[in-house]
Simulated assay, not measured.
Amino acid sequence: MFTETSGTVVITGASTGIGEACALLLDQLGFSVFAGVRQEVHAQKLKEKASPRLTPIFLDVTDADAIAFAVETVTNASNGKLAGLVNNAGIAIPGPLELLPIADFQHQIQVNLTGQLAVTQAFLGLLRQGQGRIVNMGSIAGRSAAPFLGAYNASKFALEAITDVMRLELRPWGISVSIIEPGTIATPIWDKSLTQADIDKENLSESAQNLYGQAMNAVRKQVGILASKGISADIVAQAVVHALTAKHPKTRYLVGQDAKIAAMLKHLLPDRVYDRLVLHSMGL
């Protein structure tokens, strides 16, 4: 399955979940991994699980200074060449679009989209020198929208577009650009999202509760069920490794049976029929 398994790879959002799984698998395969984290505790946990080839770096994708420092660190340690960049950092901010504070929507886009572009721009010089590859962590939510996840959907739909454009623009330099589209994965992002949803619901006004309270309860319950049945992040990591190492990497990787079914139905069904399926699946 895998071909070249050497060189330097940078991964954002490697503290937990998919990013951590990618960092550890790439380390096991022999890559020199720079794993982006935001807290010392996560840096220490990664060190305990990995070989000396793995180096945690403090990288907030919304912080230009942090990105610049990460590029300098990687440049000094990699002879100016990068084999791969995995744009994995991401958050999920839930809530009905009608009531979502614009600042929250902007933060969702900043982390999941603008930050990915900023990091990619910063590392492209190293990727050119190393004839490296870019892997963006999308989601089936980038193809199929769901109620109360509008901001997250918007960020992932847009990441699909950016991936397509990068693939076209960077082709002259032989830089492969792929996007991973997982379904429901057992990662902390959903626990954090559900916690935030509970906080947001408690802060809703009485009129907002009347509008969306019952529906939000139903969706929260269903998301909790789906999250508990999510597949391992290790399966996503295998798709990332394929995108980085295969002789002929795919442009898109649907990961998980639910993602594959959703993509097929979205392609085949009229919008309103698909809408009814989505609403039913979310308990609405």
Rank of each mutant, 00 (worst) to 15 (best):
V177L: 10
K47F: 12
S207R: 14
P96L: 05
H267F: 11
T245R: 06
G283H: 08
I199S: 09
L126P: 09
I162S: 09
M1C: 14
F58N: 07
D258Y: 00
I91V: 01
D258P: 02
Q39F: 15
A259K: 05
A14P: 06
S144R: 04
D65V: 10
W173K: 12
N203M: 10
T75S: 11
A21H: 04
I109P: 02
A70S: 11
G115E: 00
G130K: 08
L100F: 11
M166D: 05
V10Q: 04
M282V: 10
Y274H: 02
M1I: 08
L265A: 00
T62F: 13
S78Y: 02
I162L: 14
H242G: 09
L59G: 11
T163V: 06
M282Y: 10
S205Q: 10
L277V: 00
V37E: 06
V135C: 00
T55Y: 15
P270S: 08
A66I: 15
V273I: 03
A122Y: 14
T75H: 15
I140V: 07
V219G: 11
L254K: 00
T8G: 01
I102G: 06
K81W: 00
Q131M: 14
A21D: 06
R252H: 03
V41P: 14
Q209M: 03
L113Y: 01
E169W: 08
D63P: 12
D191G: 13
K260R: 02
Q214E: 14
A233W: 12
M216L: 07
R53V: 03
D104H: 12
L268V: 02
A92I: 05
W173N: 13
T55R: 13
A237T: 08
L127V: 15
D63I: 14
E160T: 15
T187P: 04
T187Q: 10
I231G: 05
A43R: 05
S78W: 01
R252V: 04
Q222T: 13
H280G: 09
V223P: 05
A239W: 02
A186H: 08
T184D: 03
D65G: 06
A227V: 02
R220F: 15
A145V: 10
S228H: 03
S207F: 11
M1A: 08
A66Q: 13
R220N: 15
T8P: 01
F148V: 02
T12G: 03
E181A: 07
P172E: 10
N112R: 00
E160W: 15
M216H: 06
A92F: 02
E169A: 06
G19Q: 01
